[in-house]
Design a protein around this nucleic acid. Structure first.
Length: 595
RNA sequence: GGGCACGUAGCUCAGUCCGGAAAGAGCGUCGGACUUCUAAUCCGACGGUCGUGGGUUCAAAUCCCAUCGUGCCCGCCA
């Protein structure tokens, strides 16, 4: 609805400015501050003042006079306040919003008939997922949800680095050492916790063992890498033995968030099918290609990148970026757009990748990268190899435990003694605990550095997931109390939507809530265009504030509420419910029916 | 040394891309509100040279330049 109103305002302003012989290149449309009663505003009068030879307020009224609000559907009136033009919403605007938002899929934009692949996480299968990387699945999943909501056909990929040296080291270690050689028991009964001990053991061995022993090990590691490079099945099977087990465990961890994938794309795929070899041949043909210091490289300084891109070693083995180029060309064939969620330390590689893809003749317009900075511990970086860091599983467990305590504590002093059974407590503990972790991460701009601290990550107070989730629970409570099914469209239920009249929603709290609901699709659109899910989180907070104000001032089910007002408010609650449920689903945060 | 990012209230952050209406939240502190559709809520108070210095503009947290501080990158690792 907001999108229609904005379109209407734009065209009305443009017409008015043309009629007055003013330029229309900048309409100065903006959202007014909170204490102003309009939904949209324009500061165009400032810009025109010079040309008009009149002070801005005078220009503003001239423009306002030129627009006939009666001809507009969603605008009731245009008022000037000093130099500003304010567009007030019409009854039809609120009416339509209320009607549209009572549908369960409110906020989902029209199908764009465009596909996009969102690649995220793609952590090396070396061990348990730690919190340092946790931003990736959480942001990535939200970006994918957001694009899905914005009308794209979305696939989620995890790119598996199963061809690098680290995987050869891992495979060698797994085949070489026995349980007896390892230190300690697995921290959890899952394959990645078991196998990571071999990985750490192998790396420690390479650092500390005597020179001849290390040389033997290196020879074995080298042979695995050569086997992979040649695309031979035996080497692939050996590495897969490790990779598939570890990946299975990591998958289970990520599923807890939940972050699910449509496909796990293995790097070795592009070595086995010959794509990497073809790509190397094409790279060698480029003007930028040089053979220098016993390796094939690309000189990219003419394209603003100082660092050469090495794409083939002297022994003819490829490197990660080489395979990633083949991988991306494959993505371009399969999808209209490709989004990658990457740690900020990959910024340079991302630039090299894009530039090289262009040199190879690809159109990279549909390729976009979302960069985020790592979560560090107060004492420094987290590392799988060194075993420093907090496992994501532990964080989630702790979050759930704390949430459970919280639920139980609150049960004691609840006013309404509703029947929360053990299952409900467990459900709420999971929804709130995991929701809080996700929300805390997804609500911040990815470029900001985060230092992990338990207390902060697990704060259930306001401006966190539970604050927003609580609004959803309140909505469901009211709807269910009224005998309605909170999960479904209102249409077809025991509410006569035809007779619901937005006119009856006349308090400022009701109107502001409805205006906030109206903005939701526009927020989805902008967040999707910018690939910024945190905008959705920001919106949920504003929304929750508005809903709580409504909740405080406007009883829905009380005896003394006029039946027609009650129906209208019920419709508003249903609209609120769908809005907050859908916003939370974009963020990947559960929306509890009760808390 | 070069490149990129970040710096807004004691703390954690919105707002910055696309300049506009006396800078907004939460936490913390202090003081209030549960016979009411769930108090994980709400109301009020205190708290700001938007790192610093210049510039552009009718207008700068927002754009430009410089500078300081912090993080990341500058591997034939991934």
């Amino acid at each position: 609805m907001f999108l229609s109103l904005r379109a209407e305002v734009e065209s009305a302003l443009e017409t008015a400015l043309s009629a007055l012989d003013y330029p229309t290149d900048d309409l100065g449309i903006e959202e007014p501050p909170e204490d102003v009663d309009s939904v949209l505003a324009s500061s165009v009068a400032f810009r025109l003042a010079g040309e008009a030879g009149a002070p801005p307020p005078q220009v503003a009224s001239a423009v306002a006079d030129e627009i006939d609000a009666d001809e507009l559907t969603y605008v009731a009136a245009i008022e000037t306040q000093g130099p500003y033009l304010n567009f007030l919403p019409s009854e039809a605007y609120l009416e339509n919003t209320l009607e549209t938002a009572t549908a369960a899929d409110y906020g989902a934009l029209e199908d764009r008939k465009e596909s996009v692949v969102v690649e995220h996480t793609s952590a090396n299968p070396t061990g348990p997922v730690h919190v340092g990387r946790a931003r990736n699945p959480i942001i990535g999943d939200a970006v994918a949800n957001l694009l899905d909501y914005a009308g794209y056909d979305v696939d989620r990929h995890y790119y598996v680095n199963d061809a690098g040296r680290q995987m050869a080291v891992f495979t060698w270690a797994y085949e070489t050492f026995d349980e007896d050689d390892l230190e300690g028991e697995p921290e959890r009964d899952r394959p990645e916790y078991d196998l990571v001990r071999y990985y750490r053991k192998g790396n420690a061995f390479l650092e500390n063992a005597s020179e001849p022993k290390v040389a033997d090990a290196e020879a074995e590691i080298e042979s695995i890498m050569q086997g992979l490079e040649a695309g031979d099945d035996e080497a692939y099977e050996r590495v897969s033995e490790v990779v598939d087990q570890v990946l299975g465990g990591m998958k289970a961890c990520l599923a807890r968030l939940p972050a699910e994938f449509d496909e796990f794309v293995k790097e070795t795929r592009f070595m086995r099918n010959g794509d990497t070899d073809d790509l190397v041949a094409r790279l060698k043909e480029l003007d930028e290609a040089v053979y220098e210091d016993e390796a094939w490289q690309l000189e990219l300084d003419a394209h603003g990148i100082e660092k050469n891109l090495v794409f083939l070693r002297a022994d003819d083995t490829s490197l990660y970026p080489t395979r990633d180029l083949a991988h991306h060309e494959w993505k371009f064939e399969e999808y209209d757009n490709a989004v990658t969620v990457l740690g900020e330390d990959h910024t340079l590689q991302a630039d090299q990748l894009r530039t090289t893809l262009e040199l190879l003749g690809n159109d990279t317009e549909g390729l976009r990268q979302v960069l985020y900075s790592y979560v560090n511990l107060p004492e420094g970086k987290m590392s799988t190899r060194r075993g420093t860091g907090v496992d994501l599983d532990d964080l989630l467990d702790e979050a759930i435990d704390r949430a459970r305590e919280e639920v139980e504590e609150r049960m004691d002093d609840r006013i309404r003694d509703d029947d929360l059974g053990d299952e409900d407590v467990e459900r709420i503990a999971h929804q709130v605990g995991i929701g809080a972790v996700r929300y805390d991460i997804v609500s911040k701009q990815p470029s900001k550095a985060i230092t992990f601290e338990w207390e902060q990550a697990l704060d259930f107070e306001a401006q966190s997931a539970p604050y927003v989730q609580y609004v959803h629970a309140r909505c469901c409570g009211i709807l269910e109390e009224a005998g309605l099914d909170s999960a479904a469209d209102l249409e077809g239920q025991d509410v006569d939507l035809e007779s619901v009249d937005a006119d009856l929603l006349e308090t400022p709290e009701e109107r502001e809530l409805l205006e906030t609901i109206a903005r939701f699709p526009a927020v989805v659109e902008e967040a999707a265009d910018d690939l910024q899910p945190h905008q959705i989180a920001t919106y949920t907070r504003t929304f929750a504030d508005r809903f709580n104000a409504f909740y405080r001032e406007c009883p829905v089910l009380a005896e003394d509420v006029d039946p027609e007002v009650r129906e209208a408010r019920l419709a508003l609650v249903a609209a609120s419910k769908h809005t907050v449920a859908n916003a939370l689903s974009i963020l990947g945060v559960a929306a509890p029916r009760s808390m």
